[in-house]
Amino acid sequence: MKDIKRRIAISKYWDYTFATIGLLSSFVGLALLLTLFLDLFIDGFPRLSYKFFTSFPSRFPENAGILSAWVGTVLVMIVTALAAIPLGVAAGIYLEEYAGKNLFTNIIEINIANLAGIPSIIYGLLALGLFVYFFKFGESILTGGLALTLLILPVVIMATREAIRAIPNSIREASYALGATKWQTVRWHILPYSTGGILTGIIIGLSRAIGETAPLITVGALTFIAFLPTSPLSSDFPFISFRWLLDPFTVMPIQLFNWVSRPQKGFHMNAAAAGIVLMVMTLVMNGIAIYIRYRFRKKIKW
């Protein structure tokens, strides 16, 4: 009797020990994030003003702003999302639902897994050769967005596959049993049920892309640019213009990096303020992902 009690006590002791270690480990990440955010906040908050968002870069730290940087980041992200979502999701669906198990599929799978681990500057070099020199897109928003698309494609493909794999086979079988084709099954069952997971993957990919500097500098993103890309809305027919795709650009992390490495204290404050904006952008994107996942989960009725 005593022996059993002792054993239970020991087991419980280990249980508590691990719970404590686990809790502390999760606090490390949180504490780091909080410290970082607080530090940025203290340094950068005084600089956050309407003017900061509506001014171009300047040699005077107090006049400098992030207008060209945040507009550039938003536009590049739009291009990246528009290109990465269809390509990544289609590839993911194909590999999971259509592709047979053979050597060819295996090679594709191994390659995608490897691509996810390649340093981002390599993607920059690839994009420089492919989009700038071969397709002649120039050093433009289009090139930047497509470079980041290459970077996040593996993430999107893998997330899509994970999400599809989580759907029980019985759902597919039920659909086939009613005479649905493969495409009908994908369209009406697989896609709706996996949307939450796929979107999470896309947002994780985009959050990675939003902080990238190296591949964009390689394809020719600028640092000083005191004008905005052409407006996507025009007064002439057809009222929508895609000229902005070929305009030069800069993005938030490049502006931030430049400010951090300047000697003047004022620029360091600007960098902190830009850091807050970038962090909030990422947090908002993650928030949207969580909300979408929650909404799609509620719709699933099995």
Binding site: S58, T223, A226, F227, N258
Partner: peptide
């Protein structure tokens, strides 16, 4: 990037003087 701050300053002033009729872009490769 060492020369950048100077060129940035000149570009800023030049665009002001030209009332933004000329666009100047500066990179740091």
């Amino acid at each position: 990037s060492t020369v950048y701050p100077i060129t940035e300053a000149v570009a800023e002033e030049f665009q002001k003087a030209k009332r933004a009729s000329v666009k100047v872009t500066v990179g740091i490769s």
